[in-house]
Design a protein around this nucleic acid. Structure first.
Length: 413
RNA sequence: GGGGAGAUUCCCGAGCGGUCAAAGGGAUCAGACUGUAAAUCUGACGGCGACGCCUUCGAAGGUUCGAAUCCUUCUCUCCCCA
């Protein structure tokens, strides 16, 4: 392990990864003289991380880069309960098989971002210690340390007083607190990090560790990632933006970042790139049209971290071809079309629907009627227009919907 | 255990026998303006080669020329009392 970097906390602060932490001013810094073990948890509710998970993941990368030890906790056990935080209603319960599959998926992705191994990052699954408890035992062991009166004051639960809260969800903070205790015992973990909505859960853990072991541990939260207009970030018309290239292609991933609001650019450069802050500050200083340069850097860097430099370059080349004019079209998302299909006249509406540019044929036709569809740079407004072999350019059709959605159909030889 | 309210298209939410594919808002998409930004304005927003046809208003039956609207049963949710 490299020499621990005592400036980890100030680095995190300067990059935006700080909302609040427990302890007195400067206390956590002081406690971090030697290598610190810090953990953050993710419940495996899907088989891939998405952009919403990126802040804690990036934070863990900084922890490791600074010479400390990050622990990534996958909540195979807690996901059996379901975190009620931020939910208006109970989450659908996932089957054990599903959770196991999801855990595998997340594990694979995490391994690309952090170095795991002896003396390096740890990856744990809380199913390993949560699943074997007997109900009575757990209640006797942990229950006495939790005040229902206090739990009811948690924002999470207060909002649920209106819509209803089941007992299973009410138990969630106990389990998360127990995780911290367990990691403290096993790995000497002294810091739990998470989104600010986790504050109450994290505090529960800090308290529990103190009560059970007398240990002094810390909680640290990140700001919740919202767009300048207040909405949760990470959603597009296609749904969540995933880190799994099968779900969100590197090209789309790159596009997501190019398309962030002007107002969010600076914030995102701090969170989602590893560029030095001087460079971030300089890029953020750009104005107007120039700011797009900053977004291109953001997109490239963010894509590089997740998909690697090669993919980032490809995504960038594709974007340049489509938006910059000319260039290399080979990186644009594409699919083959058979000659037979074209011979009988391939309705544009169907082509759009079959390649994810419209949900249905009707929507495809509507888009055409509204002037939103372009084939090889020619606007097509006839809803029943067809593609024919002889209309192909360089053996392909470039379909475009709106300003940003492109797809190339390659005529089979 | 007793009493009450309710389940509507992605979300919220009108409709309460025909004029309902179902008001309004949000979200979303397209067009204009732009910088692959934001804001604003306009349009679209169940499916279908479509001024018509098909499938929708928790589920299944029934009444009726005709039902999201009435009746029956069922499932689920919420509230109040105990």
């Amino acid at each position: 392990m490299s020499q621990p970097n005592p400036t980890l906390w100030s680095l995190l602060r300067s990059r935006g990864f700080f909302q609040q932490c427990t302890g007195e001013e400067g206390e956590i810094e002081a406690a971090a003289k030697g290598p610190v073990t810090a953990y953050t948890g993710f419940d495996p509710t899907a088989s891939s991380f998405h952009v919403g998970h990126l802040i804690p993941l990036m934070a863990m990368m900084h922890v490791q880069a600074a010479g400390h030890r990050p622990i990534l906790l996958l909540g195979g056990g807690t996901a059996m309960i379901g975190d009620p935080t931020g939910k208006n209603e109970m989450r659908q319960m996932l089957s054990r098989e599903q959770l196991e599959a999801n855990t595998q998926g997340l594990r694979k992705q995490a391994e690309r971002l952090l170095r795991f191994g002896p003396g390096q990052a740890e990856m744990v699954n809380n199913a390993d210690w949560l699943m074997n408890w007997g109900y009575i035992d757990f209640l006797r062991e942990i229950g006495p340390h939790f005040s229902v009166n206090r739990m009811l004051t948690f924002e999470t639960f207060r909002t649920r007083m209106e819509t209803g809260l089941s007992f299973i969800e009410f138990n969630y903070p106990l389990l998360q607190a127990f995780d911290f205790l367990e990691l403290h015992k096993r790995f000497g973990c002294t810091v739990q990090m998470g989104g600010d909505d986790q504050w109450a859960n994290i505090l529960s853990g800090v308290d529990l560790v103190r009560r059970k072991t007398g240990g002094h541990v810390f909680g640290w939260t990140f700001p919740l990632l919202t767009t300048a207009s207040g909405a949760k970030m990470g959603k597009t018309e296609k749904g969540a933006v995933w880190l799994d290239p099968e779900r969100t292609s590197p090209y789309d991933y790159y596009q997501f970042w190019v398309n962030v609001d002007d107002a969010d650019t600076a914030k995102c450069l701090g969170f989602f790139t590893q560029l030095p802050m001087e460079e971030v500050a300089q890029l953020s200083g750009l104005e107007g049209e120039q700011l797009r340069r900053a977004k291109q850097v953001l997109a490239f860097e963010a894509t590089k971290i997740i998909h690697g430099e090669e993919e980032a370059k490809r995504a960038e080349a594709g974007a340049r071809a489509l938006f910059g004019g000319g260039g290399d079209l080979s990186q644009v998302p594409s699919a083959p079309v058979s000659r037979a299909r074209l011979a009988e006249g391939y309705p544009v509406a169907e082509a759009l629907a079959e390649h994810g540019m419209a949900k249905t044929n009707s929507e495809g036709r509507r888009l055409m009627e509204q002037g939103g569809v372009t084939v090889n740079d020619q606007k097509v407004t006839d809803p029943f227009a067809k593609l024919n072999v002889e209309d192909a350019q360089d053996g392909a059709f470039l379909l475009k919907v709106g300003k940003k959605k492109f797809h190339r159909l390659l005529v089979e030889p």
